[in-house]
Each structure stands twice: as structure tokens, then as C-alpha cells.
Design a protein around this nucleic acid. Structure first.
Lengths: 325, 325
DNA sequence: CCATGCGGTGAGTTTTCCTCACGTTTCCCG
DNA sequence: CGGGAAACGTGAGGAAAACTCACCGCATGG
């Protein structure tokens, strides 16, 4: 009589899932029944119903006991985690909510080269525990249990997300100090190979488009990962085109040089969240701290004319000004 | 009549939680009732029961509508995530289980210096997507949604966990090539400061205990993070005592030297999981791959006499043999 | 071969949950 | 200012879900 409810159909008997989880954990309907203080018949029927609902067997019955299907095992494992989360959530609620750590997803190289080394200071300053998940590209906040994602706004940002600009991106060629003599400043020619990365294959082309004179290199090498290209540059094997934020520490320590300066490429780093960032104090403080720190890095190589502050995210404007030689 | 069931008391009416989540999302009992295809009376009662169960108000009633309590809002947010996970889990089950990425927790410096740079190769070789969570110390597999944790077995491992040895740890002093002349090989004296880290304050003492002649340094500096100590060593500011696995790439690239060699400190790197690792093909392959790679690094500085292969984890044996000069 | 342990099943009962109808309060608007 | 609408609370009654009970069948193992 009732129309098939899509929302309801998607989530079958919650109780049955709980019973199944218990049975799977014990590997026995009888023991699950004991745990749940019901008879084994009740458990048997719940699971039978659930299997009918899902349209697949969860257990193989052997009349001497039940054994999980391969798929049943996988489902049970996830359910165990989920019901555990549920218990935690309720326990936290009853206890008055002791916070979980803030989970931040961040592009791996930025993670490595900038974020992780300075997280200790953030914890000390704010008492806020942060977990860093090294991941780039598209993100599913719920699936990955991520509170905040740091990304460049060089792709269309899902309108359902909340975003705040952290700072401008600025790119520039970098090489090791030992390799620096191979750069002819007047012609803009490097007698070194250009180091490319597969993740941003167009970076050199984009830089050349925005900057004159164009930089010439002796050869091209492509690395799988940004981190590797920077490592190659550190080793004096060529010139990498790198974000100032990724090589800031290496520049400051004198391990790398940026003979052509760094120039904004029109993109920004943004913080993305599934929920309004203002609403979450921890996220707000983290974004503010990150913005301050990354803008400070930027200021070391850029004239401080129009540093972008934290503000509501806008589509990347095409400005490409400001340079340091 | 029934004894108060602890397991059951901890998880109150699952259906009520679902109803609450919907009501919280809509900010209205009536609309939740529409979504769930029940009357508003049913929703009202479910939530009332839930509040009685939890012993706290979730909504503030204003007779013109309901408004979430602060605690109610927090609970609703977590429930939304949890029910979302549940839907995902069931959808995956129905679809025949498209796997989620393998989540690996790893000490940050090892992450940075070793794991992340080589993950691309693993993905290419196996097609297994791995997410890396940079975190050290104790781990809660369920809370952090971690499949596998890489740790050193220098602490008591929870007996409920499953462990597999990956490879031996080996430590040694490292400095930059520029600083190498400040090492007197015959006396074992560095005319450089020793770089300590707060996370392993006893590392130098332990190394000295196991090795003769003892290494002497001119001063001591303590860094907050291993990564920073290694960076300081890269910059020629002193001698850090580092794991071969963390500096392997830097040694290979000639950015660091290990003039005293590397010696096992009796600990091993182990992979920990909440579930039997053999049972999970992805986890098994990852551990095997990691073991091969880390043992290869080890082999570059150690005589290949008794390289530990993947095996069931045992408490760290006290052997401290094998050295390279 | 029989005792034992484990699950399946059908009938009947209990409990839960929902509906219905009505009451209350607040807000809006003519 | 007063009626109507919107939103939630509530009590009685009923439908549906869940559980119990008792019995069956099938392995296993002494």
C-alpha cells in the first residue's frame, strides 16, 4: 500500500543489522542470542529477513553452525566499525562530548614539505590535535572522515561545499645552489634538464605563458610525484617548477635557489569543508593559522602588496602580478 | 524483569536515532515525518523516548518548532556521518563490494621520508589505492578508521592486535657531506652538535650503549620533531641519529652521510591490524611490498646475513649484531 | 548408535511502534 | 484583535514487528 520509500528502502531493519553484526562476531547464532538476551530463534529470523532484504546470503548454513560468506565477512567488518562509531558517539554525548582530533586532508607534497613539520607548533599553541591525511584530488568528506581539505582552486569546487581562501599559489623554478651557475640570468637559460611531474604536466607551459623571457632547459624529465621532482632538484639534477609553499623550507635553509623568483599563477589554496567553517571553532583556528603561516612564506618572496587574507572563496581571478628577482 | 543488559543499554533504539537524525537535518519533526512516511506523532514520541534514554534534551521545544540543543547538534552531525557510512556499506554490499582505499597509519617522518614518495609505484604495481595517515604512537584502529598501522615494536603491543614484522630498525649518526670533515674517524668525535628529538630523547644514549667507541659531539640541540632534526643535519647544522629507513633516500642521493654506519637497535618495524592480516589480501600485499622495500634499504648498509623476513611478530629480541663501517 | 550441539520453522503471544484525533501554543495577517 | 495556519504534544487503540516456545533435522563424536 505504501509507496516504496527510497530513503527507507536504502536502510533496512537497523535492528537486524545489529543482530547480524553480533552473530558474525561470534560466528554463532546461539551466542549472539545470548549476548542480545533473546532466543536463537529470534536471531535466526532476523538474519533470514536481512538476507531476503539484501538479496544475498550472509551465512552459509551447515546445520552444525553458520559460516560467514565472503561478502558477509566484509559487511560484518564494516558494520562492526560503524556500530563502534555509534557507541562512541553516544558515549561522547553522554559524557558531554570530548572532541575527536581534527582530520585534515592535504596534497601529499604540501603535507610533507610544509604541514607536518609545523603541526607540532599548532598543537602547542592551540591544544588542538590534528590528524593529517595525505591525499590529493577529489575528496569525499564523509567517506574519508575528513573535517577539512586543503586544495588549490584549480578545479570546479562542488557548490555544496564551504570554502575559504587561504593564500595565493606562487610558482617558480628551483634548483640546487650547486647547479645555480648553470643558469644564465640574462638569457633565462638553464643548462639543466627541466623536471616535470605527472600530476601537473602543464605547470611549465603555464609558467612560460605568464612569464617573459621564457625559460629554456636542456632536456625534460618527468617524475611520478612532485616530491620526487623536488628531490631531484635538491640533488642538483635539474630545475623543478615548484610551489613556493612546498619549497619554502628548502629555500630558507639554502638547499634550493629560486633564481627567477616566484609568481602567482592565479590560483589559491582553499580550505574546503562539508560544513560552514565558521561554525567549527577548531576548523576556523586551523584555517587562520594555516593562512597566516602560508602568507608568511609567500611574503618572503613576494612584495607584500595585495596578500589575500582569509575570505570567502571566489573563483580564481586571473591576476598574475608581483614578482621577485 | 530483564537484567539491565550493558550491551543493549549502550545502544538505545536504533530507529529512534535514525528518526532523530532526520528531524535534526530538517529542523522539523513534521518534515522528518514526511521523509520517513510516518505521522509527526510517531516522530515526536521516538524523539521523546530517545531523550529519556539519553537523559538529556536534544531539541528545545518552542511550540512553533523545534530547535537543536548544542549537544543535540553535535550528536546529529556525527549520526549523519554514521548513517551515511551505513548506507555506503550497504550500497557497496549490494553492488558487490567495490573496495575502499586501504588506510595506513604511519609515523610522520617515515611517512614523509619513505612511504609517500614510493606509494605511486605501489599503486601502479598492484592497483591498490592507499591512503596514508601521518600519526605516531598509540592508535585506535576503529576511531581513526585505520586498516593498518606501521610502528616500531618498542612498546608493548596490545595482545588483541595482529602483528607482522616488516624489517629491523637500524640507527646511525648522519650529517651532511659538507660537515663530514668535522668527524674524526679514529676517535669517533664529531666537531658538531648532536641533534636530539623530543619524540625519542633516549636515542643517542641507546646507541652509545650498544656501540664502541662512543661518539662525542660538541653540543646538544633538541628538536620538536624528527623531521626537523634531519633537516638540520641536511643543512649541516649537526649530527642526527636517524633510522636508516628515514634517511635512505637522502643517503642514496648523497645529501647525507652515515660515517659510523647503521646498527640494529633490537627493535623491528611491525605492521599492526585489528584483524588477521593474512585474511585481507590488500593488507597482505602492502605488508609484503613494504617489507621488501624496507629490507632493500637495510641491505644497502647492512651485511645481508640474517635479514628478517615477514613473519609472525615476536617481542623484540635483544640481538644487536651486524654493522657497517 | 545415541547423546549433544546447533540451526530452522510454525504457531502463538508480547511488545513496539504507528495512527488517529484532538489539544495547546505561537505567529501571521487581514 | 481575532481567526486561521503551522507545529508539536498526547492518549487510546490497533497493526505490525519481534520474540518465545516447542519441536524438527542434521551433523559430530564418544
Amino acid at each position: 500500500m505504501d509507496a516504496p520509500d527510497p530513503m527507507r528502502a536504502r536502510l533496512p531493519q537497523l535492528g537486524a543489522l545489529r543482530v547480524f553484526e553480533s552473530a558474525a562476531r561470534h560466528g554463532s547464532l546461539t551466542r549472539a542470542a545470548e549476548e542480545l538476551h533473546v532466543t536463537h530463534g529470534a536471531v535466526s529470523k532476523q538474519i533470514k529477513n536481512l538476507e531476503a532484504d539484501l538479496g544475498a546470503a550472509l551465512f552459509v548454513r551447515r546445520n552444525r553452525g553458520v559460516f560467514l560468506t565472503e561478502r558477509g565477512r566484509a559487511l560484518a567488518a564494516r558494520l562492526r566499525g560503524i556500530f563502534g562509531d555509534l557507541e562512541d558517539a553516544l558515549a561522547d554525548f553522554r559524557a558531554g562530548e570530548p572532541r575527536q582530533p581534527l582530520v585534515v586532508s592535504c596534497e601529499p607534497t604540501l603535507c610533507l614539505k610544509f604541514l607536518i613539520p609545523s603541526l607540532g607548533a599548532f598543537l602547542q599553541d592551540t591544544g588542538i590535535e590534528v590528524r593529517v591525511l595525505a591525499a590529493g584530488g577529489r575528496i569525499d568528506f564523509r567517506r574519508d572522515h575528513v573535517d577539512l581539505a586543503i586544495r588549490r582552486n584549480d578545479f570546479a569546487i562542488d557548490g555544496t561545499l564551504h570554502a575559504r581562501v587561504i593564500c595565493d599559489e606562487a610558482m617558480g623554478p628551483v634548483c640546487s645552489p650547486e647547479a645555480l651557475p648553470r643558469f644564465e640570468a640574462n638569457t633565462g637559460r638553464f643548462h639543466l634538464p627541466a623536471l616535470h611531474t605527472r600530476s601537473r604536466p602543464d605547470a611549465w607551459a603555464a609558467w612560460t605563458r605568464l612569464n617573459r623571457p621564457a625559460i629554456a632547459c636542456t632536456a625534460d624529465m618527468t617524475y611520478e610525484h612532485f616530491y620526487l621532482a623536488i628531490e631531484a632538484a635538491l640533488a642538483g639534477q635539474g630545475v623543478a617548477l615548484a610551489s613556493i609553499h612546498m619549497v619554502g623550507r628548502d629555500l630558507a635553509a639554502g638547499r634550493l635557489c629560486g633564481p627567477c623568483g616566484f609568481r602567482p599563477d592565479g590560483t589559491q589554496y582553499v580550505a574546503l569543508s562539508a560544513h560552514p567553517i565558521d561554525r567549527d571553532e577548531r576548523a576556523s583556528r586551523f584555517v587562520a593559522w594555516l593562512s597566516a603561516r602560508m602568507n608568511a612564506t609567500l611574503a618572503t618572496v613576494m612584495p607584500p602588496n595585495a596578500g589575500s587574507q582569509v575570505a570567502d572563496a571566489q573563483p580564481a581571478k586571473g591576476h598574475a602580478i608581483g614578482a621577485t628577482r
